[in-house]
Design a binder for these strands. Structure first.
Lengths: 144, 144
DNA sequence: TCCATATAATTGATATATCAACTAATTTAA
DNA sequence: TTAAATTAGTTGATATATCAATTATATGGA
């Protein structure tokens, strides 16, 4: 037995746990709604929908994912015909956008996602949410 | 383009990003210190060190990991001879504990980990840390 | 112009997460 | 007491994360 702080009391461990709880709950809600998508696929889909002809590099940077992960997640979204991959002006790159099915799917998923956000934050008022946001940004700044 | 909140402004997305930044920074520090271990292996090692003859089920529950993940992480820690796996009173289960090398390794890693915690939280006073903890626990309660 | 360097994306290897199926051991209940 | 149900752990399949190596294309400088 160590004389150190127990893992359960460590703030960084609580952040990890919170993230897992959010992801698990979101995934369950997607499944219950009959939406065949993972949380990571959702994030990629949403970012493409929010962007204008985004490239894989920009997707990776804004989602804090590796380029390799983006390639593989896109393979699955392409197979589901939710995303289009168009050769870019620069022939090394591609420009991504949603298909009609992708836009429809995104709308459906967004209903679920907004409900998860509402439920997860229901006991935190606006001030508390702002404080939380500020604290997390400080941690990121300290370690990035 | 959607009329919805951008991903970057979503609190849950910020929690995910914070978690990633903490993990990446920790992993880099382990590597720089010559410690051949992943963050997940560290969490398992630390929990075993903090516990008395813990079983895999209890490890999984307290770390919010799947039993299957615990099996595979333990395989690697066993190969590194940092952990012992002893048949439990109940013959279906095993009791885990650290080897002498495991204890030594844990002490070294703990130095790094404490420094990461200090650095990451350096601009947050005790009150702000308590508020952050409370907010995260509310989110967990709302979704668990 | 041509070569060296840089960049976008892919692929392979290993680690982890999740789910389902499975084995072995234990407990419960008829 | 024995059959059914439960529990601990493992294994296989698929998704994702990370790192390194590779391909194709682009760019900058001699």
């Amino acid at each position: 037995m160590s004389n150190d702080q127990k893992l359960e009391d460590v703030l960084f461990y609580l952040i990890e746990k919170t993230n897992k709880v959010i992801r698990r709950y979101s995934q369950i809600r997607f499944i219950q709604a009959g939406l065949d998508i993972t949380v990571d696929q959702w994030l990629v889909l949403k970012k493409i929908g929010d962007s204008d002809r985004i490239t894989q590099i920009d997707l990776a940077n804004s989602l804090y994912k590796d380029r390799a992960s983006i390639t593989r997640i896109l393979d699955l979204l392409l197979a589901k015909k939710l995303v289009n991959k168009v050769e870019g002006h620069d022939k090394r790159s591609y420009e991504l956008n949603l298909t009609a099915a992708g836009r429809k799917f995104t709308d459906q998923a967004l209903t679920i996602v907004k409900d998860v956000r509402r439920k997860g934050l229901q006991s935190l008022d606006a001030k508390e949410q702002d404080t939380l946001r500020a604290s997390l940004q400080k941690i990121i700044k300290n370690l990035e």
